[in-house]
Structure formats: C-alpha cells, structure tokens
Measured scan of single mutants.
Amino acid sequence: VPQRAWTVEQLRSEQLPKKDIIKFLQEHGSDSFLAEHKLLGNIKNVAKTANKDHLVTAYNHLFETKRFK
C-alpha cells in the first residue's frame, strides 16, 4: 500500500504541479478508480481537463477507499 506523498497543504499549493498528482494517481489507483474520476489517459490531457480541487478530492478518495492497483 502506498503512503501519502503530500500533506493537504502541499496538495493545495501552487508549488505542486497537477501532473505530479495525476502521475501518482495513475501509478497507484485501480483502473476502475481512475475511470470513475476521469483520470485515465495521457497525463497532459488529463491535466488540461482536471482542476486541482478534483485531483485533491481523488487523491484523498484513493486513500479512503484503498482502491489501489
């Protein structure tokens, strides 16, 4: 089981690129989880459509539901 890579403050910070969060989610989330949160596909394309709040919610949801690969 992966550990949380970032704190809530870090997740919301401008310093953390959306692409980093997407990469983490794609590496650790199950396909059904990723599909549900519309996070499947090319990281660049996902970054265009997903806002930061959406990614933070998905990140927290992944750990709450433990839907890891």
Rank of each mutant, 00 (worst) to 15 (best):
V1E: 13
V1F: 13
P2S: 04
P2K: 04
Q3E: 14
Q3A: 09
Q3V: 10
Q3Y: 07
R4K: 08
R4P: 15
R4T: 05
R4I: 05
A5S: 11
A5K: 15
A5I: 15
A5C: 15
W6G: 06
W6L: 05
W6Y: 06
W6K: 04
T7M: 03
T7E: 10
T7F: 04
T7H: 04
V8S: 11
V8W: 06
V8D: 15
V8Q: 13
V8N: 15
E9Y: 03
E9S: 04
E9Q: 05
Q10P: 02
Q10R: 02
Q10M: 11
Q10V: 05
L11Y: 02
L11N: 01
R12H: 13
R12T: 11
R12C: 15
R12L: 15
S13C: 04
S13M: 03
E14G: 13
E14W: 08
E14A: 14
Q15D: 10
Q15I: 06
L16A: 06
L16H: 05
L16G: 02
L16T: 11
L16C: 15
P17L: 11
P17C: 10
P17A: 09
K18D: 08
K18C: 15
K18E: 10
K19R: 11
K19D: 15
K19T: 14
K19L: 11
D20M: 12
D20V: 13
D20W: 05
I21L: 05
I21D: 00
I21V: 07
I21W: 01
I22E: 01
I22W: 03
I22M: 04
I22K: 01
I22C: 02
K23E: 13
K23S: 12
K23D: 06
K23C: 10
K23V: 08
K23P: 01
K23M: 10
F24P: 00
L25C: 01
L25W: 00
L25Y: 00
L25H: 00
L25G: 00
Q26N: 03
Q26F: 06
E27K: 10
E27M: 11
E27C: 09
E27R: 10
E27I: 07
H28M: 08
H28S: 11
H28T: 12
G29N: 01
G29C: 05
G29Y: 01
G29S: 09
G29A: 12
G29L: 02
S30D: 11
S30A: 10
S30W: 03
D31Q: 12
D31I: 14
S32R: 11
S32K: 09
S32N: 09
F33I: 02
F33P: 00
F33K: 00
L34P: 00
L34G: 02
A35C: 15
A35V: 09
A35H: 13
E36I: 10
E36F: 10
E36Y: 12
E36W: 11
E36D: 10
H37M: 13
H37L: 08
K38Q: 13
K38P: 01
K38I: 04
L39P: 00
L39R: 01
L39E: 00
L39D: 01
L39N: 00
L39H: 00
L40P: 01
L40S: 09
L40Y: 11
G41K: 06
G41P: 04
G41E: 04
G41T: 04
N42R: 13
N42E: 14
N42I: 11
N42G: 10
I43T: 08
I43V: 11
I43E: 07
I43Y: 10
I43R: 08
K44C: 15
K44Q: 14
K44L: 14
K44F: 13
K44I: 14
N45R: 14
V46G: 03
A47K: 12
A47W: 06
A47M: 09
A47E: 15
K48T: 12
T49D: 12
T49Y: 13
T49R: 13
A50Y: 07
A50E: 06
N51A: 09
N51C: 09
N51V: 09
K52S: 04
K52W: 10
K52N: 05
D53L: 06
H54E: 12
L55S: 01
L55A: 03
L55H: 00
V56T: 07
V56S: 05
V56L: 04
T57P: 02
T57Y: 14
T57I: 14
T57E: 13
T57H: 13
A58I: 15
A58C: 08
A58T: 06
Y59H: 02
Y59W: 03
N60Y: 07
H61A: 13
H61N: 14
H61R: 13
H61M: 14
H61I: 10
L62K: 00
F63K: 01
F63L: 03
F63M: 03
E64G: 05
E64L: 10
E64A: 09
E64K: 08
T65F: 14
T65M: 13
K66V: 05
K66L: 09
R67C: 13
R67Q: 11
R67A: 12
R67T: 07
F68E: 02
F68P: 02
F68V: 02
